[in-house]
């Protein structure tokens, strides 16, 4: 076998809350430089799956391999140090700190081999990268919604992750912000970062995702190239049956 090692390989991932099985026997794989869309109606288990991968929740069963190393059940700080970072569905920045410190938070405690880099230079580069160039001294609580999202992204990018999990990062943006947001994520992929994208904005999914996995009721109901998955009958039914208003 000469197939390259997948960045992330999930198998049999299961997590229940009481009687509700939020993620049920989920399997998926992501290759290097790929953007994988993780879709499904509200309550289908996408965010739970993300929380399991990033260590915020412990799985009941299953394996999660990051670059071949099983991270299932590890605490979030160890997973972050192994090169998996994330953003949150409801944007979380450190409000009382300035932009520079927000990015430093991701940089200083992340991966050990980054300890030697010039922190100020790298922080400036990262802020530039997400479109917040020169805003180092600005307090996070003073930023607009989109800029808070950009800052959160810069923090997640700081430790040079192998895999980035974006939880509805594009939700709530206006049309022009959406365009620049899509461009930003695409440029990250062009830099070689592998991304899992949980997203409801179909325009973004079509523009960005190479492949998609669709969940419903905690199970994977479809998987494949974006265009054909979105045309899949089961997928359309899951969405229309689940949240007709969004369709």
């Amino acid at each position: 076998m000469t197939a390259p090692l997948p960045v992330l390989a999930v198998e049999g991932l299961t997590r229940a809350f009481g009687g509700l099985v939020a993620v049920n026997n989920l399997a998926l794989e992501i290759g290097r430089g790929e953007i994988l869309g993780l879709l499904g109606p509200n309550g289908s288990g996408k965010t739970t799956a993300l929380n399991l991968m990033s260590g915020a929740l412990r799985p009941d069963a299953g394996t999660i391999r990051l670059m071949g190393c099983d991270i299932a059940g590890l605490p979030p700080y160890r997973i972050a140090r192994l090169g998996l970072t994330r953003t949150f569905q409801l944007v979380r920045v450190l409000d009382g700190m300035d932009c520079r410190e927000n990015v430093m938070a991701g940089l200083v405690f992340g991966r050990p081999h980054l300890a030697a880099v010039d922190i100020n230079a790298r922080t400036a580069t990262l802020l530039q990268r997400v479109g917040l160039g020169g805003q180092e001294a600005r307090l996070a609580c003073e930023l607009t919604y989109i800029d808070r999202k950009r800052l959160e992204l810069a923090r997640a990018l700081a430790p040079a992750p192998d895999l980035l999990l974006l939880d509805e990062w594009l939700a709530g943006l206006n049309p022009s912000e959406l365009v620049s947001g899509i461009d930003l994520i695409r440029s990250l992929r062009d830099d070689g970062i592998t991304i899992v994208l949980v997203e409801h904005v179909m325009r973004a999914v079509r523009a960005l995702c190479d492949r998609c996995v669709v969940m419903s009721g905690g199970r994977k109901i479809a998987e494949g190239v974006t265009g054909s998955v979105l045309a899949d009958k089961a997928v359309v039914e899951a969405y229309l049956g689940g949240i007709a208003a969004d369709a």
């Binding site: 990033s54 260590g55 915020a56 605490p75 979030p76 700080y77 972050a80 140090r81 970072t85 994330r86 949150f88 979380r92 920045v93 450190l94 409000d95 009382g96 700190m97 410190e101 430093m104 938070a105 991701g106 200083v108 405690f109 992340g110 991966r111 923090r155 430790p159």
Partner: peptide
């Protein structure tokens, strides 16, 4: 120190702190 910075982050948002790689 690093510890002091880590604690400020924990004080702001403990969940973010753990996802930044801090053993809280």
């Amino acid at each position: 120190s690093r510890l002091g910075f880590a604690l400020r982050i924990i004080g702001e948002d403990e969940t973010v702190a753990t996802h930044c790689g801090i053993n809280t």
